[in-house]
Amino acid sequence: MTRLRARAASRLRGGVVATLLLATAVTGGCTTESRLTAGGAPQRTSTVTVLAAASLTDPLTSLARQYERAHDGVTVALSFGSSTTLAQQVAEGAPADVVAFAGTPALDQLPKDATDQGGRATIARNTMEIATPPDNPGGVRSLADLARPDLDVVLCASTVPCGKAADMVLSRAGITPHVVSREVDVKATLAKVRLGEADAAVVYHSDVVSAGDTVKGVVIPTAQNTTLDYPLVWLNTKPDTTGFAELVRGTEGRAALTRAGFLAP
């Protein structure tokens, strides 16, 4: 009897787990497509899908909310990741209306005809900066300090733009840092510093700005630094696609990007 009960119990447990998994899958997969106005009449609903470099998370999120407030019924769906991953996703057919990359190399990964229907423009520039925890436990004062073996340094993976830029800055300065991890994108890299797990990271200046006082920035002199252009690509001419692209390129977009620590193009 105990044997049977145990079996039934373990089966039940399996069932509960499966149900939970299914429930997450189902709820996670739903998006609200139709919205109703207060009067009950259906109105124009549309979704602009934006894929953007992780470093653009803060300014694009606020611009998206701004666009949604100004255009009732329009949803701006945002997805952030490394530019390399995003370009690949678009190439593999991921639905996207607007994409924004850190650096121009990711553009090469887009399908050749990607901008035929839409267009592209440079929206911002960014430089590299050292981020440390607020109390700077490693006492980092310059790029040269990163060569100290007692410092735990975190960089972006060498396959993504922030990792390539960091590698370039470090190799030009002739510095081999004690790297403990190469993270998948710039936000993951910065997170290791914010959590105090790493002593320093080489990230974008804009990330140091948007992290506020949760990290301390150590400036890399212009002579040793590098600059990345941020291209914005709109892949079609649907009204909300170009509308959102114009908002990002316009004065309000410029202001949001500058506030987030980006340089004007």
Partner: peptide, 16 residues
């Protein structure tokens, strides 16, 4: 984290 030879396991290597 993700560091080749130290913490980069096969699934992480696939992702990178």
């Amino acid at each position: 984290g993700n560091f080749a030879g130290r913490t980069q396991t096969a699934p992480l290597a696939v992702y990178v």
